[in-house]
Design a protein around this nucleic acid. Structure first.
Lengths: 191, 191
DNA sequence: CTCCATATCTAACGTTCGTTAGAATCGTAT
DNA sequence: ATACGATTCTAACGAACGTTAGATATGGAG
């Protein structure tokens, strides 16, 4: 991607530190020590600590979400959501830590108001997107809303379990839980 | 509880600041300013910043969890879990912020290794407890495990939604989501 | 070889942090 | 009234922080 090696290495180390110690617990000196460069090099590539953090959240994190969304091949509903969650089991450590940092900011556990606003705009797009995916497969459109809502809530916890707590959840277990919610409400054709 | 007024007020302010800005983002000076006392008063009542944080997490947070657990009157399974979540809607702000801080530490977003260990010991007790509550009500003990697991996962997100993000979820919506998981698997007698 | 932009460094600035020393105040028992 | 423990204060310490000034190294273009 970037030919500029040091700039990338600084960001990688910064993600690691922001994720582990939070914004205020992370120091430019520690990042520099980890990268093996001197302290002002970080200011050579990034205007400030805050800008470094901003770029990670508003560029890299959102790019990661898009990248992960593209990887899923759409089949039936249960298979789709199982794969969506199961793919997270195989996330590389850097990607997982970036994801974790994003969730931390999304939950307003770190970062500023500006980040939270960007996150909330993203979150508002979640329910309509899943409702659109699911509605064609549902037998009874009446209780569509509660099914979509419950599914999103279940997905959220599974994602937190894998990405935040670093657990691995077996593919069958993921499928079992998603099936428990969806199974009885899907059209006969769609599984 | 405590007749010692200032000590309590310091802790209240500390919970607020630790919750809002994280451990490293919180300064003893800001706590003192909020309480309206001088800076060394905090060291008069607490050995250090770390001890203040420790006491909040290992005493107050766990005490809050116990206190919330006791408030629920046990009826049928769905009613029980609906009330467990719905009660959080009415949490006072100080309690909610303490709860939020606890979740933050539980997710290793703040605090040290020692806290995480205490949290994990607590978490190990969660599944068996709910399995014991639910098993008598379940029609088919075969899929007991996946039902309990899925329910816990759903509860987790609902709790995060209310406590961490500060939303309010209508009682009927909570009941709908819990019913979606449990309804078809309960014994005919139990609702 | 010289020039110049890029990349990197050492050293320091001013600020804020957690923490403490030591003095002042207050209430109460003698 | 006075002596004393509990409570509160002002002032400061050393360390670490984010950030910057200014010097040095590097490497290709003329």
């Amino acid at each position: 991607m970037e030919d500029n090696n040091l700039r990338v290495r600084i960001k990688k180390a910064a993600i690691e530190h922001f994720n582990n110690y939070g914004y205020h617990g992370t120091t430019i000196r520690n990042i520099a020590r980890e990268v093996g460069c001197s302290l002002p090099m970080i200011y050579y590539y990034y205007k400030s600590k805050k800008e470094l953090f901003n770029e990670i959240i508003t560029n890299d994190y959102l790019a990661l979400l898009v990248r992960l969304g593209k990887k899923i091949k759409k089949t039936d509903a249960i298979g789709f959501y199982t794969e969506l969650v199961n793919n997270l089991n195989d996330l590389s450590d850097p990607d997982r830590h970036l994801y974790r940092l994003g969730i931390k900011v999304y939950m307003s556990f770190d970062g500023d108001e500006e980040h939270i606003e960007a996150m909330e705009r993203y979150e508002e797009s979640v329910y309509p997107r899943h409702a659109e995916i699911l509605r064609p497969h549902l037998r009874d459109p009446e209780n569509c809303e509660v099914i979509v809502r419950t599914l999103i809530h279940l997905l959220d916890t599974l994602i937190v379990e894998i990405v935040v707590k670093g657990r691995t959840i077996a593919r069958e277990d993921i499928e079992d839980e998603i099936s428990l919610i969806l199974c009885d409400h899907l059209k006969p054709g769609a599984r």
